[in-house]
Amino acid sequence: MARPTFRELTAQALSSVEHGYDLLAPKFDHTPYRTPDRVLNATVRVLRPYGPFGTGLDLCCGTGAGARVLRAVCRKRMTGLDFSAGMLDRARSAAPDGTWVRGNALALPFAPGSFDLVVSFGAHGHFLPRERPRLFAAVRTALRPGGRFAFPLAAPARPGTPAYWSLLAFDTAMRVRNAVWRPPFVMYYRTWPLTDVRRELRAAGFGVTLHPLSELGVRPDGSPRCRLVLATRLPEHSG
């Protein structure tokens, strides 16, 4: 199947987030937005020594790319959650062995302690900074004590580089679009700084470790281009 056309991408961008992804779903896996296999494989490498896990949740699963990670490290039920029915249809077709649930990541429709592992790929930009504490609290509730929450986080582009200006231009254009057009489409690339994310995870009751995803390369100073953030649910009294 061909990639989405410029007209199709424009229609998505002028829709709500949910409807936009419903429109994009049939061609999503042919866009650069699908999580690359090298990111999934690197995540599996880091998680394997901490497993095997029991039940796993792919949060904001999209078309189900994260199922590869859950299959590799979980022994029991594999679940994906997304708010786009179109994306879930694609995930269900690709991985009928999973349980695919339509729902809101900020109000997870699962009993407390349902999962041993929660992963998420490529969804950060859909949550505003003020929503992160609520998101982290929801994930903590869904995890069993000692459960893990894992997601890759890329290093910020260095000021003045082409990547820096490209991401800044995208976020600026999105803010202008949302200021003049309704419904809003929340997607930003520069709103999850590592320092803030670590602090908010700890405040939500997680212990946090960082693991370089060396397969994804290093920056000129030798630091990793991408890390896996691994947050462990602490006991209540450790909050």
Rank of each mutant, 00 (worst) to 15 (best):
216 L>P: 03
23 L>D: 00
113 G>L: 00
165 W>R: 13
188 Y>H: 13
239 G>A: 14
17 V>S: 14
57 L>Q: 09
2 A>F: 03
124 H>E: 00
84 S>W: 09
32 P>A: 01
94 A>W: 09
59 L>M: 07
102 R>W: 10
120 S>G: 09
212 P>V: 02
1 M>C: 06
17 V>D: 04
120 S>Q: 11
70 L>D: 07
99 T>R: 06
58 D>H: 07
51 G>F: 02
12 Q>G: 00
55 T>E: 06
50 Y>L: 11
171 D>A: 02
175 R>Q: 02
23 L>F: 02
221 D>Q: 14
31 T>M: 10
135 L>E: 00
29 D>Q: 08
162 P>A: 08
164 Y>M: 10
184 P>H: 03
137 A>K: 15
172 T>K: 04
99 T>Y: 03
40 L>T: 04
226 C>P: 00
159 P>T: 15
23 L>H: 02
2 A>E: 01
16 S>G: 15
179 A>K: 01
81 L>G: 09
46 V>T: 01
222 G>Q: 13
83 F>T: 03
191 T>E: 08
128 L>V: 10
16 S>W: 04
215 E>G: 14
176 V>N: 07
104 N>C: 11
214 S>M: 06
47 L>I: 06
66 G>F: 00
89 D>E: 15
88 L>R: 05
92 R>Q: 06
213 L>H: 02
36 P>H: 07
233 R>Y: 06
158 R>W: 03
212 P>K: 06
215 E>P: 09
214 S>V: 02
218 V>K: 15
211 H>K: 14
39 V>T: 07
200 E>M: 10
152 P>W: 09
7 R>D: 13
22 D>S: 10
59 L>C: 07
106 L>Y: 14
12 Q>L: 11
56 G>W: 13
94 A>V: 06
197 V>I: 02
7 R>K: 05
95 A>M: 03
26 P>S: 10
218 V>N: 12
37 D>C: 06
114 S>D: 02
15 S>M: 09
185 F>D: 08
118 V>E: 08
1 M>P: 08
121 F>R: 13
134 R>C: 03
93 S>L: 12
134 R>T: 10
63 T>N: 05
65 A>E: 13
39 V>H: 11
95 A>R: 04
172 T>Y: 10
106 L>W: 15
35 T>P: 03
1 M>T: 10
98 G>V: 05
210 L>Q: 07
211 H>F: 07
20 G>Q: 02
187 M>E: 03
219 R>L: 12
188 Y>Q: 06
27 K>Q: 11
87 M>A: 03
142 A>G: 05
225 R>A: 05
210 L>H: 13
186 V>K: 04
197 V>H: 01
87 M>R: 08
150 A>H: 05
179 A>G: 15
136 F>C: 10
111 A>K: 15
82 D>P: 12
14 L>T: 13
115 F>I: 00
38 R>P: 05
111 A>M: 03
114 S>K: 11
142 A>C: 05
37 D>R: 14
152 P>Y: 08
97 D>Y: 11
89 D>L: 04
223 S>W: 13
107 A>F: 13
21 Y>I: 02
127 F>K: 07
229 V>L: 02
203 A>G: 06
119 V>T: 00
10 T>N: 00
230 L>S: 07
229 V>N: 01
37 D>M: 08
25 A>S: 04
224 P>Y: 04
78 M>W: 14
82 D>I: 04
57 L>G: 09
63 T>F: 10
124 H>D: 05
53 F>T: 00
35 T>H: 10
155 A>L: 06
96 P>F: 09
6 F>P: 12
29 D>M: 04
